[in-house]
Amino acid sequence: EIRVRVEKDPELGFSISGGVGGRGNPFRPDDDGIFVTRVQPEGPASKLLQPGDKIIQANGYSFINIEHGQAVSLLKTFQNTVELIIVREV
């Protein structure tokens, strides 16, 4: 597990896919977790996150067994800083 802090400027600078009942993700199709799919170059998350990172927690909210829409809404709700716990396959 890796813990990262992303400062919104003005957005977080990454996209996610997956989630329960979602269209899945390109990295682990059998896993309904939330995965980072795109990281904006030079964006707030560019040095912190990589495509394929699985987000398991954001600001204390579990991202395990969460629906895609709910994950997106939560990330939009947070002000300024988001603390993520991620799992990265090496």
Rank of each mutant, 00 (worst) to 15 (best):
P44L: 05
V20L: 15
L74M: 15
L49R: 00
I16L: 05
N80T: 13
V4D: 03
D9E: 08
D53W: 03
R28E: 10
L75Y: 02
K54W: 03
G52N: 04
G69Y: 10
I55V: 07
A71V: 03
E7G: 07
R88P: 04
I66P: 01
T81N: 09
G43Y: 05
I66N: 01
I85C: 09
D31R: 05
S15L: 09
V6R: 00
F63H: 03
K8L: 13
E67I: 06
L84K: 01
S73I: 06
P29N: 14
G19K: 05
I55A: 00
P51F: 06
G33L: 02
P29V: 10
P51A: 11
F14Q: 01
I2F: 14
E7V: 13
N80H: 12
F35S: 03
E83G: 02
H68D: 05
V90K: 15
G18Q: 03
T37V: 13
Q79I: 13
S73L: 08
Q50H: 11
K8I: 12
P51G: 05
I2L: 12
I34K: 02
G21W: 06
F35C: 03
G33D: 03
Q70T: 12
K54D: 02
I2H: 07
N25Q: 11
G43P: 02
E89K: 08
N80C: 09
F14C: 00
E7A: 11
D9V: 07
T81G: 08
I34E: 02
P44K: 07
V72R: 10
K54T: 04
G18F: 02
V87D: 13
L48Q: 08
R5C: 12
R5P: 02
G52W: 05
V20I: 14
I86Y: 03
G60W: 03
S15I: 08
G18P: 03
T77Q: 14
V20N: 08
I86S: 02
G69W: 13
Q57V: 06
R3F: 15
I66W: 03
I85F: 08
Q40L: 14
G13S: 05
L12W: 08
E1I: 11
P10C: 03
V82N: 00
I64W: 11
G52H: 04
E83A: 04
E7S: 12
D31W: 03
V90A: 15
S17A: 12
E42Y: 15
V20W: 05
F14W: 04
Q79S: 13
R28Y: 15
I34R: 01
F35L: 04
T37K: 11
K54S: 03
G43A: 09
N25V: 08
V82C: 07
V6P: 02
Q50A: 10
E1N: 10
I55C: 02
D53F: 00
E11Q: 05
I64G: 07
L84E: 03
P29S: 14
V87R: 13
D53R: 02
G13R: 02
G43T: 09
E42C: 14
G43C: 12
Y61M: 15
R5H: 10
V36A: 02
Q50W: 13
L84G: 01
Q57P: 01
A71Y: 01
Q79C: 11
P10S: 06
P44G: 09
V72S: 11
P51Y: 05
V36F: 02
H68Q: 11
I66L: 10
T77A: 13
S73T: 15
E1R: 07
K47G: 13
D31V: 06
I55F: 02
S17I: 08
N65M: 05
K8N: 05
V4R: 01
G19L: 03
R38C: 13
V20R: 11
K76F: 06
Q70P: 06
I55L: 07
I56A: 06
G33P: 02
S46R: 07
V39E: 01
Y61P: 02
N65S: 10
G60P: 03
I55Q: 02
S15W: 07
S15H: 11
E83M: 04
A58K: 02
G60C: 06
V4G: 02
V6M: 08
I16M: 06
E83I: 04
D9S: 13
D9Y: 06
N80W: 07
L48R: 07
I66E: 02
V20E: 07
S17V: 12
V20D: 05
E67P: 12
P44E: 04
K54V: 06
L75W: 04
G33V: 01
L84A: 02
Y61V: 15
P26H: 07
N65E: 13
K54N: 03
P41N: 09
N25I: 06
N59G: 12
H68K: 08
P51C: 10
V6E: 02
F27L: 10
Q50V: 14
G18I: 04
G60Y: 04
P10M: 04
T37W: 10
V6N: 02
N59K: 01
V36Y: 01
V6T: 02
I2W: 03
I56R: 05
F63W: 05
G13V: 01
G43Q: 06
T37E: 13
R88V: 00
P51N: 05
V4F: 05
G52A: 05
A71N: 00
V87W: 12
P44M: 08
I85N: 14
V72K: 13
T37D: 14
Y61H: 15
V20C: 10
S15P: 00
P44W: 01
F35E: 03
I64K: 13
Y61D: 05
G33M: 04
L12G: 02
G21Y: 07
L49M: 08
G52R: 04
V36M: 00
V4T: 02
Q79V: 13
P41Q: 11
Q79T: 13
E7M: 15
G21L: 08
D53Q: 03
F63V: 00
S62F: 03
K76S: 14
G33T: 03
R5G: 03
G13C: 01
L12C: 09
T37I: 09
L74P: 01
S46L: 06
S46I: 14
R88I: 00
Q57N: 14
E7R: 11
I2E: 03
E7W: 09
E11D: 11
N80P: 14
I85R: 14
I16P: 00
L84H: 02
A71H: 00
D30R: 11
P44V: 05
E11L: 07
D31F: 03
G43W: 03
E42Q: 13
D9Q: 09
E42I: 07
S73R: 15
V39Y: 01
